[in-house]
């Protein structure tokens, strides 16, 4: 049977299997239909009903259960996550598992669409090395993303020495909801 202990391994393997069956559109549809609307429907229910309080409730327990290294910051207007040790990317890296070309896309693949439905937009950046930050704001709030340390102080992942690994590609999302709505930039 498939277990939850190594879930991230066969989850990532599944992305590539689906891509080979139906191309990238099938992978996007999988994140939307299977993950957002089915598996994680409890997240949508919490966030739609409670906004930031629902985000606290959802990510407060899931990230802890998954063994993440992270810090969450919330105000009345924004919910921010600083992830310095992504549990799933970390699992893949430690075990040398890489079938799909960009595992990190899956988070925006379901979270971005979920938040769009609830009228939230995402500022987000990840370094493909298990580190990222997210700022979630209501669609009608034009506030730009915070400057480093402005919201989460010493917990801001962007202040870490290993935030910009050499020769990596950073994926950057600005007021986005779609996994493909990203800009990329190379680190030095």
């Amino acid at each position: 049977m498939l277990g939850c202990y190594d879930f991230c391994g066969h989850y990532e393997w599944t992305f590539e299997w689906l891509r080979q069956q139906g191309g990238e559109p099938l992978v996007r549809t999988y994140w939307d239909e299977a993950i957002r609307r089915d598996s994680q429907r409890h997240a949508a229910a919490l966030i739609a009903a409670k906004g930031i309080e629902g985000m606290k409730e959802y990510w407060g327990h899931t990230l802890a259960d998954e063994g993440a290294g992270y810090h969450c910051t919330a105000t009345d207007a924004v919910y921010r996550i600083d992830m310095f040790a992504c549990p799933s990317k970390g699992f893949l890296t430690r075990n040398g598992l890489r079938q799909y070309h960009d595992y990190c896309d899956h988070c925006m693949g379901w979270i971005g669409l979920l938040l769009k439905e609830c009228n939230w937009v995402v500022d987000h950046e990840h370094n493909h090395c298990g580190q990222c930050w997210w700022e979630l704001r209501r669609t009608d709030d034009p506030t730009p993303p915070s400057k480093p340390s402005e919201l989460s102080g010493e917990h801001d992942v962007r202040k870490r020495a290993d935030w910009l690994p050499p020769h990596e590609t950073m994926d950057v999302y600005e007021r986005a909801n779609d996994p493909d709505d990203k800009k990329t930039r190379k680190t030095g």
Partner: peptide, 14 residues
């Protein structure tokens, strides 16, 4: 493992 991942396994099969 985190048991909520069983939700994703079931959803993937569906």
């Amino acid at each position: 493992g985190a048991a909520d991942f069983y939700f994703a396994i079931n959803a993937t099969f569906r």
